[in-house]
Design a protein around this nucleic acid. Structure first.
Length: 582
DNA sequence: GCCGTTTTCGGCCCGACTGTTTTCAGTCG
């Protein structure tokens, strides 16, 4: 996300929090938060959008448009500054402590003068909090526990970790008697790159006794460190450090409610709000149990039932972000999203020649084992010395070795000799064109100088895209989820140039990368009609399992099989690669 | 503050769990 959009998004989120603490209009709070969310999702720099069109963007009205203009002109927003002046800055951190919301924080501030986390700790120590109305022993104990957690735990975790945790729990619970269905929901099901907590939903028509057994198994699971809540229909736990202390919520519902519950817990929250408003407009009401009319349930067993009863096509979870999906569902114009099984080629993978942990042949057979018709061996170029990148001389030998394996495996899988060639800081590539011409396919990726400013980054990537031998730009921004921001180039300029060249931009499927990210991929596909390449960047067999994360990211972008080069038939793919080269 | 095929004014989603309550407010998702 470009810096300005990120700054603005943060300001609007903060205005929402501050307005909440000061007891402002709660609908205004929602509106501020919505503006923040919309800004986060934008690919285009807000400064490049015609100010007259800005209020037309859903979630941004006259007020927000004016504030954005004010920020672009002066670098700050007066209303934001006014709110900041009213509320001690440390209070916002206090609100981040789980269990402490705006009402409690305001009370702590107004009644005992707590203005920061340190104040909170001190007042608990002196026992002043116990005198407050509504503050019992248990509540204070919980605050202490949550303070500790807030200090040690990170925010959201990468999807790879959350997915592994969810699958482990589901595997360990699914055979309990009376469990009819069990699925993960939440942002994990929507395929977001990071997950706040894991939601697991169970359908059961079992006895109270059997349901109790399900919850008992859950809260006593070996991965569980702490039980946060444990009721008759719902339990929440915190996991051990191996799973980064992630929170997991388990919910058990009757089978006739499973679909409505799955929708509810899959979210997003914003999508759900739109669905409920829509139900009301149609004279019905929707909750996590069913869609009902005049108090009588009319749908709930499956998601399809509920959507159909509201005259909507079923919306894939990845699209449930309140980005216009309901309008498309109403007119039955939702894209037919690509599926994991549609992927038939891996176009970016490594071997022991550079930093992979498997041979050329193991790699090729691994890809063949997944049902792929083509694999490209793309080891690192010489600039990646720490990854044992190939010198020109070694690359020539490597090409030979790949061709030998290719010949041996003829009829099993097509093996392409390629390279993941470094895009150097100035945009030149790490090998000369003469050498690149010898390869079947070139993935060009940035690896170093990932903190350069946006203007330089844009120039750098544009120069690489101009190279006639580049077929795919690999992990275009070089970001690492939750760790490194990576490049923030002018994505629109990149898209335009890549589209003109007819090359593909990669969604690197590693849960550490997911680069392009969903919002970029969405613009690339929806607005430019650009081609995506979804690659695992496999350094070993198990990395091929990451493909699912690349696919859900592409699905979040609304991508169909037509948008993704890895879904092409063998001959079409070969033709397409040729078409990108001189 | 945002929004509109019942609306440019007057609405704006819904339920479980907890802790502290003796009937409910706050938080969370």
């Amino acid at each position: 996300m470009p810096t300005t959009n990120a700054q603005l998004a943060a300001i609007f989120h903060q205005m929402a929090d501050l307005t909440e603490i000061t007891g402002g209009n709660r609908f205004k709070v929602n509106a501020f938060a919505k503006s923040g969310r919309v800004l986060e999702d934008m690919t285009k720099q807000v400064s490049e959008i015609d100010p007259a069109l800005l209020p037309k963007v859903e979630g941004i009205g006259k007020g927000t448009a004016e504030r954005i203009a004010e920020f672009l002109e002066t670098g700050q927003i007066a209303d934001h500054q006014k709110l900041l002046a009213q509320v001690p800055s440390g209070l916002l951190k206090v609100m981040d402590v789980p269990g402490l919301g705006p009402k409690t924080v305001a009370l702590l501030w107004n009644e005992v003068g707590i203005e920061s986390i340190d104040d909170l700790k001190a007042k608990i120590e002196t026992g002043e909090l116990e005198a407050l109305k509504g503050f019992g022993k248990k509540k204070i104990e919980n605050i202490l526990k949550n303070l500790k957690f807030a200090e040690s735990a990170g925010d959201r975790q990468r999807i790879g970790l959350a997915y592994a945790l969810a699958i482990m729990l589901i595997e360990d619970l699914k055979d309990l008697p009376s469990i009819e269905k069990i699925e993960y929901a939440g942002s994990l099901r929507r395929g977001k790159e990071t997950i706040g907590d894991v939601d697991i939903l169970v359908a059961s028509s079992g006895t109270d006794e059997q349901k109790k057994a399900i919850f008992d198994a859950f809260v006593n699971h070996v991965a569980v460190a702490d039980v946060i809540a444990h009721g008759d229909t719902k339990a929440s736990v915190r996991t051990h450090e191996e799973s980064k202390g992630m929170q997991v919520d388990l919910r058990v519902v009757a089978p006739e409610n499973f679909g409505a519950a799955l929708m509810y817990f899959t979210g997003s929250k914003e999508h759900n709000v739109k669905m409920r408003e829509r139900a009301i407009a149609q004279g019905m009401s929707l909750n996590e149990y069913s869609l009902s009319k005049d108090g009588e349930p009319i749908a709930g067993a499956t998601e399809e039932d509920v959507f159909a009863a509201m005259n909507l096509a079923w919306v894939a979870p990845e699209l449930r972000e309140d980005r216009g999906e309901l309008a498309l569902a109403e007119s039955d114009e939702l894209p037919k999203l690509l599926e994991l099984a549609d992927i038939k080629a891996e176009l970016h993978s490594h071997t022991t020649a550079s930093d992979g942990r498997w041979s050329i042949e193991e790699n090729a057979l691994g890809a063949a084992g997944r049902g792929f018709h083509t694999v490209a061996i793309t080891d690192h170029s010489k600039g990646q010395a720490q990854a044992n990148g190939l010198s020109e001389k070694r690359l020539v030998q490597h090409i030979e070795a790949v061709r030998k394996v290719a010949k041996k495996l003829e009829g099993t899988i097509t093996v392409l000799a390629g390279s993941e060639v470094d895009i150097l800081a100035d945009g030149s590539l790490d090998y000369d064109d003469d050498l690149l011409a010898e390869l079947d396919i070139v993935v060009a990726s940035p690896h170093a100088a990932l903190t350069q400013d946006p203007a330089k980054a844009t120039k750098r990537l544009l120069k690489a895209i101009e190279n006639p031998y580049v077929t795919i730009v690999g992990h275009p921004t070089g970001r690492i989820v939750n760790r490194r921001e990576g490049l923030s180039p002018d994505m629109e300029a990149i898209f335009k140039a890549a589209k003109d060249r007819g090359i593909a931009l990669e969604i690197n499927a590693s849960p550490y990368r997911l680069d392009l990210r969903d919002t970029h991929a969405r613009t690339w596909v929806q607005e430019y009609g650009g081609k995506l390449a979804i690659n695992t960047d496999a350094h070993s067999e198990d990395h091929l399992n990451n493909l699912r994360f690349g696919v859900v990211t592409a699905r979040r972008a609304g991508a169909t099989t037509d948008d993704v080069v890895n879904t092409m038939s063998k001959s079409t793919l070969a033709k397409w690669i040729k078409s990108t080269r001189p």
